[in-house]
Design a protein around this nucleic acid. Structure first.
Lengths: 154, 154
DNA sequence: TTTGAAAACTCTCGCGC
DNA sequence: GCGCGAGAGTTTTCAAA
């Protein structure tokens, strides 16, 4: 945190992390501030980079992405070039929603969204597994979603 | 998908998954439709549940949640009661952003956001590990974020 | 689906604390 | 520096066709 956030800023961020469709008027009412103040705070929060983006979250069952996999990838080589190339290639696959380099027994964890096991299989065989530097891929599948937030605790 | 989405609906969803601050006017211009049509489509997409919510995504470095852990949890017992109780308790922890029941060698995967290793340690020792039915917890930490999308491929 | 008009909201500016 | 009110400018909303 470069310049600290005061209580109002934190309240605004808490609110917008849950529901960014609220109007400035509604937020102003909740926080007992004027509309202009809320407007100004939010503008500054965006300017300073606290708010990266505002996005719609879809119902993945409805849009036919029922299968979520977490895939743990181990590479053969760990040179800077090899890591960069893997990251670059993997980011291109639209099935890959997230890719993290990790500590521990494997190198990367990928969150992959497909419609069903057949599609996942095709993705694995035809896209992921043919990258040059892959050693092993272990796939785990989501059975049920207990909690699914994009909001950070504040 | 109950009733199918046409090209316009899909385009709108693609756009809103990336940036939900665009006005109806801007979307209408991109898709060469009238503003009222876009307005109507979005209203229906919300009504029908395709769009679950609209949220602000924050910069986790800036808000001091620099450490993301994926924690794989194994329970001792797998009775319906034991699973429900674990899910209920874990959902209460604000450090836990996501909790999924999984196939494979462990029962749950948790995405945990804390400020640093010390905070994670405290969370693990004082909150997660004292739940009654926990057998093992294996923690993996994010070293770097290569791709981090909330958008599903459409 | 579109048009058009009314209502609601956003955003800026200047003032005051 | 921060917050507020008022007005102009946009956007949303909801008829009717």
């Amino acid at each position: 945190m470069d310049a600290d956030l005061d209580t109002t800023d934190l309240e605004i961020l808490r609110i917008l992390q849950i529901d960014a469709t609220l109007t400035n008027k509604e937020i102003a009412f909740k926080l007992r501030k004027s509309i202009a103040t809320i407007h100004d705070r939010i503008r500054k929060l965006k300017e300073r980079g606290y708010i990266k983006k505002v996005v719609a979250i879809l119902d993945r069952q409805k849009i036919n992405k029922s299968l979520i996999a977490f895939s743990q990838v181990l590479l053969k080589e760990h040179t800077a070039d090899a890591l960069n190339e893997f990251e670059r290639e993997v980011a291109k696959f639209n099935e890959v929603m997230e890719c993290f380099q990790m500590t521990g027994a494997f190198d990367f964890i990928l969150r992959i969204a497909t419609s069903d096991m057949e599609s996942y299989h095709l993705f694995l065989r035809n896209k992921l597994a043919i990258l040059p530097n892959i050693s092993t891929v272990q796939s785990f599948f989501v059975l049920s979603e207990t909690k699914s937030d994009t909001a950070y605790p504040l």
